[in-house]
Design a protein around this nucleic acid. Structure first.
Lengths: 272, 272
DNA sequence: CGTAGTTTTGAGAGTCTTCAATTCGAGTGG
DNA sequence: CCACTCGAATTGAAGACTCTCAAAACTACG
């Protein structure tokens, strides 16, 4: 009903029947301090993909970075059995393709989850340009480093959090992202299936579904198919579980706050 | 007993009572095509850390990248409870500190697991230099991208593999790394505790211990405290489990090869 | 030769997965 | 316009894999 992506693309101008953006617009999209350059004439082309279309595949020669201007994408790894492992759900302002730099070949596959509009950043062009424009170069390193930090956080999450905590975090992150994009942070539509969410979080689709239902019953959220309403962000944010391994030996082993959330039989959390 | 790290550092020369390495040596260490530059005079300083010493902490201002020249390190994330989440075990030839570029502050903590020798790469110096030497610049991007791919693989592992498969992979990876470093790939010492391994793999120390014991009983490896002997690399490499989630709908649902490894009650699996 | 940390091993509990059935929703063709 | 079909989502029940708690053996170090 609401929070449908806008059809009009804020960034970009028409030219030769296509959309183009300049560096400044790209920087804004990436939430980076704008590179103050005389690069008004330096334009990057947009490309549109329809739902289900592949943006790039594993092994394909690398030459482009992509920035999502609108729409939703998933990036996946594919193992020797053909099983997908979702790595990320890039959306407006997210960068894709960095994993291709090293081997000059994309290491992951990107698929459009909705019709979307991407900005093409020819990697060669960027690096040559960065050589003369320090700011741009810093931007490049910065964005790559940011990606790395994001993945580190992901590893931390997969390695240490319970199913409930993972789903809660996922929702909070999505909520933030939506608000950041100018949509409602309280009510939004998931663009991915439970299966894809599960893959992303290292869970089965059933567990994802059950957890969402549980959150719903407790009143943390409202769920109707792919429409999610956030009702208690704070509770979601603080949803934790005792760490699975007793780490950091020297700590005053905190009492396992067996916080029974109301009388619900649902074994949810220690709101700390 | 064996495979103790060499006291002498292959790379590096004495000068002012300290060790220094040139760019070529650093590139070799990183397994990168040597940057053919007239940079004989461009030297990078070494630093030594003793077991347990902190190389950098979270939040500390970023200015250096580090390359491990000898010894063993762990990098960790620390959550709000003070719990450690091991991110990696950098060893000879590995790069550290990239996560600090983005926020100009290290995002992780690095601790020496053994006495070790690191090469300091002042980030500013590298980038300025890269501006004039394309090869060096490419190297920078390449190494960062490689790190990203490594972490992606880690995410895939944490999200999809069983405890046994994770431990098996860990051993194989270590074995490869050791052989790459010039040590025996068949017999080596772990430099980290079960607890650290568990944190790294998203398991408890008990599960790690039990899994190693199980591998031992089956004859895949020999275990004596921290000394590991690899006896059947291929079996370790092919150790898998049915994916936890039925992904990729359209596949001829492979029969769950209930391969009972010998008659052991140990539920160890589908050697494919 | 104690003391503390590491590792092993056991037993029980619990979370998450697996298998299965049902409902829901959208797209297609009659 | 409605029946039909297929994928997505929900829910239940049982089972499996790991975790938790606990105790003991071992190692290292002072």
């Amino acid at each position: 009903m609401l929070s449908t992506q806008p059809v009009s693309h804020e960034a970009g101008r028409q030219r030769q029947g296509r959309l183009w953006s300049n560096l400044k617009e790209v920087c804004e999209l990436l939430h980076l301090p704008p590179v103050s350059l005389n690069t008004e004439e330096l334009l990057f082309q947009h490309v549109q993909f329809k739902t289900g279309q592949r943006i790039h595949t594993i092994g394909q020669p690398f030459d482009m970075l992509y920035v999502v201007n609108s729409g939703f994408v998933k990036t996946v790894l594919i193992d020797e059995f053909g099983n997908e492992q979702v790595l990320a759900f890039p959306m407006k302002g997210d960068l894709m393709g960095v994993d291709g730099i090293h081997s000059k070949t994309y290491a992951s596959e990107a698929v459009a989850l909705s019709d979307c509009d991407l900005i093409l950043l020819p990697f060669k062009k960027l690096t040559t340009l960065g050589r003369t424009h320090v700011e741009l170069e810093n931007m490049m390193y910065g964005v790559m480093s940011r990606e790395l930090v994001r993945e580190q956080a992901m590893i931390g999450m997969l390695g240490a959090l319970s199913a409930e905590a993972r789903v809660a975090r996922f929702l909070v992150t999505l909520s933030d992202k939506f608000s950041q994009m100018g949509y409602s942070s309280k009510l939004f539509n998931l663009r991915m299936t439970r299966h894809e969410i599960g893959s992303y979080l290292g869970l089965t689709l059933e567990t994802v579904s059950r957890t969402l239902s549980a959150f719903n019953e407790i009143g943390l959220i409202s769920v109707d198919q792919r429409t999610i309403g956030i009702k208690d962000v704070d509770a979601l944010k603080s949803l934790r579980r005792l760490p699975p391994s007793r780490t950091r030996s020297k700590l005053p082993s905190r009492a396992k706050a067996a916080a029974a959330a109301s009388e619900a039989t649902v074994p949810l959390l220690a709101t700390l």
